[in-house]
């Protein structure tokens, strides 16, 4: 367990430059951020503000050009590709805008996938996948393929896939971007409930309505953090 005084995520002077020479483009110009365990953070900002780059770094998919990124006290920028993979496998869950489920593969097999890479036994894999599907209310749909599910259901399968490894952090990149308002609110209520169960959530969104579910809002502009709004959750999970 991480000692309580160490924040879950710490960014210090993170910069990220894409390209070289004349074509070089600095996407992040020195980002500082702290995220505490159990927080629900919405990352907002216009396109090109650096929010996606920050999320990629937070998701250990990319490394900063300079600066320090500590995750559970470990300096991630010093890790190699495989070590970062193992970090993702153990502590992180991903939810994407486009759901990114494997086509022609049943919901339960999609959810099982991360456990396969962990090398868990078939029976445990299946049981854990069914538990995760149950958490998102899709247990009866376990044998359906993505094509047989609605967008909202697909996103819930994707959330179940992110949950199945019992991660510390759930990273959601525009999770409601492809859904209508009603389904979006359902997804946000699900995320809020999961956050209530102890999972730290980092979400990129450009919809104020969805950001309203978050506890902390981080606003980006021109590669820098413009403003952090804490403790401003305005919407709560509605009783089922």
């Amino acid at each position: 367990m991480t000692p309580p005084e160490i924040p879950l995520i710490e960014l210090e002077g993170i910069t990220k430059t894409f390209g070289r020479g004349e074509a070089a483009f600095q996407a992040l110009k020195g980002v500082d951020m702290r995220i505490e365990r159990g927080d629900f953070v919405a990352v907002m900002g216009p396109s090109g503000s650096g929010k996606s780059t920050t999320m990629n770094i937070l998701g250990c998919l990319d490394v900063p050009t300079s600066g320090i990124f500590r995750f559970r006290g470990v300096e991630v920028q010093a890790l190699d590709r495989d070590q970062r993979s193992l970090l993702r496998r153990r502590y992180l869950g991903f939810v994407f805008q486009g759901f990114n489920l494997l086509a022609r593969t049943s919901a339960v097999e999609n959810v099982e996938l991360p456990l396969l890479y962990r090398g868990e036994k078939k029976s445990e894999r299946h049981a854990a996948a069914m538990r995760a599907l149950d958490q998102v209310g899709l247990a009866p749909w376990a044998d359906h393929t993505p094509a047989e599910l609605s967008g909202g259901q697909q996103q819930r399968v994707a959330i179940a896939r992110a949950l199945v490894t019992q991660p510390d952090v759930l990273l959601a990149d525009e999770p409601t971007g492809n859904l209508d308002t009603e389904r979006s609110i359902e997804i946000m209520q699900l995320l809020t409930r999961l956050n209530g169960e102890g999972i730290t959530i980092l979400m990129v969104t450009h919809e104020e309505e969805m950001a309203a579910f978050a506890n902390t809002i981080v606003r980006f502009r021109d590669g820098l953090v413009e403003r952090v709004e804490r403790g401003r959750r305005t919407r709560r999970e509605e009783p089922a």
Binding site: R88, R89, L113, Y117
Partner: peptide
């Protein structure tokens, strides 16, 4: 490609 991206994102190692 996208599927490989998903696998990598959820923690598959390059060698896997």
């Amino acid at each position: 490609t996208r599927e490989i991206g998903i696998r990598l994102a959820i923690g598959a190692l390059a060698r896997e």
